[in-house]
Design a protein around this nucleic acid. Structure first.
Lengths: 136, 136
DNA sequence: ATCACAAATGCAAATCATTTGCAAGTAAGT
DNA sequence: ACTTACTTGCAAATGATTTGCATTTGTGAT
């Protein structure tokens, strides 16, 4: 079982029910989630949606979660680890993960040519296409 | 001089002042713009912000513009052509373009392994880091 | 275990971006 | 010029996310 408490402590964040529940929700989900989806999953009663937003902001600042723009609905979040990306159907939202990612290499090349940037913290990479069903 | 009318006609879109102004604004800008920024640039009086939103939606549907998530403020848009990506400072928003992009290759590999996707229409790829000034 | 304090939470209300409905205006083909 | 479908403006509705503030709760130190 993943030790969410340990994750929080290592991030120097206080261990609270809302944070544990948020980590659990994200961990159990196979897809990136919106704040609202997380709120529903942790039990609509109990934890205020505002807390979810603040929790996610805090997690993002501590690189526990990653913001994902799927070009649909609100912003989605997912656990930063393990690193992966998505291919999304622009029509129905179907999604697959992939972990092929040469961005590290690209990043290094960019940094070499950039006069203003010296480090890369993270990156986004999503593919958008049509799934089988929506192709016809 | 870019022929915006031609661009619109080729996209089978009616040539209107709002669309020409939006294309001009995006064309003149060196950065992706939000709907609000475009609204300001085309002259706040004159064209309704709602029209900008509808124009951008239409442009996006016709792949004239590309939606860019810079992890700050509202959604940004930029002309789809020429194809390029960005490295963005997470602290101050400073930005550089880059056109190195092996995503085509990655995309092909993904499609080969995917059972549900057969075509890719577009992709997002942005790097997030700290600029020189914000590093200290 | 108890204390002290900074950090986290809930609730209400504000803000901001974006969308929708509808009536009036206009580009484009005939 | 005429017709028709597509666009636009304005007002109002949504929806997501943020902010203020008083209260509660982790945590590290006693």
């Amino acid at each position: 079982m993943t030790d969410f408490k340990k994750i929080l402590r290592e991030a120097k964040l206080k261990v609270t029910p809302a944070r544990l529940a948020t980590l659990a929700a994200l961990s159990k989900s196979s897809r990136p989630m919106t704040a609202e989806e997380i709120h529903v999953k942790v039990g609509k009663s109990g934890i205020d949606p505002v807390t979810i937003y603040r929790t996610l902001a805090s997690f993002e600042a501590h690189t526990l979660v990653k913001r994902v723009d799927l070009h649909r609905d609100a912003v989605h979040f997912e656990l930063a680890d393990p690193h992966h990306h998505h291919i999304v159907c622009t029509s129905c939202g179907a999604m697959e993960d992939f972990d092929v990612c040469d961005v590290e290499a690209i990043g290094k090349k960019i940094l070499r040519h950039s006069s203003n940037f010296k480090t890369i913290q993270e990156h986004s990479l999503e593919l958008f296409g049509l799934c089988k069903k929506c192709m016809k």
